[in-house]
Amino acid sequence: MTSANPLDIQPDLVVDLLVRFLREEVGQSGFQRSVLGLSGGLDSAVAAALCARAFGPSNVLAVTMPYRTSNPDSAGHARLVAERLGLELRTVDISAMADGYLNQERVELPLRRGNVMARCRMIVLYDLSVEWRGLVVGTSNKTEILLGYTTQWGDGAHAVNPLGDLYKHQVYQVARYLELPREVIDKAPSADLFAGQTDEAELGFTYATADAILYHLIDERFCEDELVALGHPRELIRKIVDRVVRYQFKRLPPLIAKLSLRTVNRDFRYLRDWEHSR
């Protein structure tokens, strides 16, 4: 069997593995239910569909969290996905909680405003996880994580993430395999933090380009000259490499100054699944 795009995956195999991953890792944490934000976009729709398969639709709480400037289409698409999957959809408008801070501190910069909204959503999800008795499932894909295109402690905060090792191209493949609504698959990806925003306009390159460069850079360990030989502009490669390096801090736990003989996560080394050996 040959494949046109080296990023192509076997979606049936991937879905089987990710459903098992969710069931086992969430189960080992003592939970049988999950909570996740449903933005109306592709990634959260795929994560929701995987959760529905893993835990059963009645054990998944989908939360849509619009801000007053959010595109109304987003909530509509979230509703469409929830209906398709048979999930309970709760709407929590974050305008009041976000504005409480944004107005008080007169925050104007779109980056800051966007980060505040993402962190408000994190607060809602983690609060509802207690009420729902379910773990918060993340929706960040590998492309976003490598580009650092996430808000630390915002959408980057979750207990488990089924999409974190899938490039955007592969998330699309899984979405098509799961037969998610066309409206969600076909629209331009957007963080919807301000009107008219699209990921690709903000990043300055397409996901397809980023995926191709990142796949060869990370998975295949190509060097810059080899990427240029593939036809990618050197300037763009450097821009992407710069993001990968610059945002490493978002991917790791905070630094701890080592003083003792055994320091957490340095030479005090246990998996999260350690808990289950008690």
């Binding site: 069997m1 080296p6 192509d8 995956i9 076997q10």
Partner: peptide, 11 residues
């Protein structure tokens, strides 16, 4: 388990 690429069948 690793490698779910479409170039082959299975992992």
């Amino acid at each position: 388990g690793r490698g779910a690429d479409a170039g082959g069948q299975g992992l």
